[in-house]
């Protein structure tokens, strides 16, 4: 997947618009931070991009495929980190990853899961039940689950929740690697410093509309923009 394009996308719940005529593009190898206050529409936008919610108006294209075509045939190319970890509490981290790997029909599952667990800093706790893991450890496992099937589009809703400084550093390395592989990364966050460090673009949403869209070229860009647009 090289390009995701939104054209006048709206999502209404009754008479309230969570998103209103949003048009933008996300390119391969880019990392975009979705920013805005509570209720700005960040999660709704991510849900629509993940095909977990349908736009009420407008169109979303993933390269040449429409939203409906991706929903039916190409959801595999999406990696999703939401508010919930989407992990089974009574299984260990390694068992969860193995389960999802089998569901995706992946091969070399043992090497794949071990590699991912190492990459997210969970190799030592791979056999610990998820219910016994800390919030930060669960978040690391969630990242591993989302990247397991090598998705082209990675959507992360508040991925920094519960991560300590080391976790954020690991995430930064992971982002660099994913960008170099040509993935499209989109994350929503309220953590400006980390968004500044991880992303090369910021998309500000306010009341469901795009308030500002800017490239992040130097440290500190984000803070000044946030004060003005979020």
């Amino acid at each position: 997947m090289k390009l995701v394009r939104l054209e006048k996308v709206s999502r209404a719940y009754g008479r309230t618009f969570a998103l209103h005529r949003v048009s933008t593009t996300f390119e391969s190898g880019s990392a975009t931070a979705l920013l805005g206050g509570n209720g700005a529409g960040k999660t709704t936008l991510l849900n629509i991009l993940a095909t977990l919610d349908a736009p009420t108006q407008g169109e979303v294209h993933y390269d040449a495929l429409s939203w409906a075509q991706v929903t039916r045939r190409a959801r595999r190319s999406i990696g999703w980190v939401g508010h919930d970890p989407l992990l089974y509490a009574n299984l260990s981290g390694a068992e969860n990853l193995t389960f999802y790997a089998r569901m995706y029909g992946l091969s070399d599952i043992h090497d794949l899961t071990q590699g991912l667990l190492e990459r997210v800093g969970m190799a030592d706790a791979h056999d610990r039940l998820v219910r016994d893991c800390s919030r930060g450890m669960v978040q690391r496992l969630t990242l591993a689950r989302a990247l397991l099937h090598d998705p082209a589009l990675v959507l992360l809703d508040e991925p920094l929740t519960g991560l300590d400084r080391a976790g954020r550093a690991d995430l930064s390395k992971l982002f660099d690697m994913l960008r170099s592989q040509g993935k499209i990364l989109i994350l929503s966050t309220h953590d400006l410093a980390t968004a500044d460090a991880l992303c090369d673009r910021a998309l500000f949403l306010r009341r469901g509309r795009v308030a500002h869209d800017t490239a992040l070229t130097s440290p500190g860009d984000l803070l000044s923009a946030y004060e003005e647009y979020a």
Binding site: A50, L52, R73, R75, W80, D84, P85
Partner: peptide, 14 residues
């Protein structure tokens, strides 16, 4: 309880 239906829904053919 885990919300895993969402993750399963993203896997084709589930």
């Amino acid at each position: 309880e885990s919300g895993c239906l969402r993750a399963l829904a993203l896997i084709p053919g589930t």
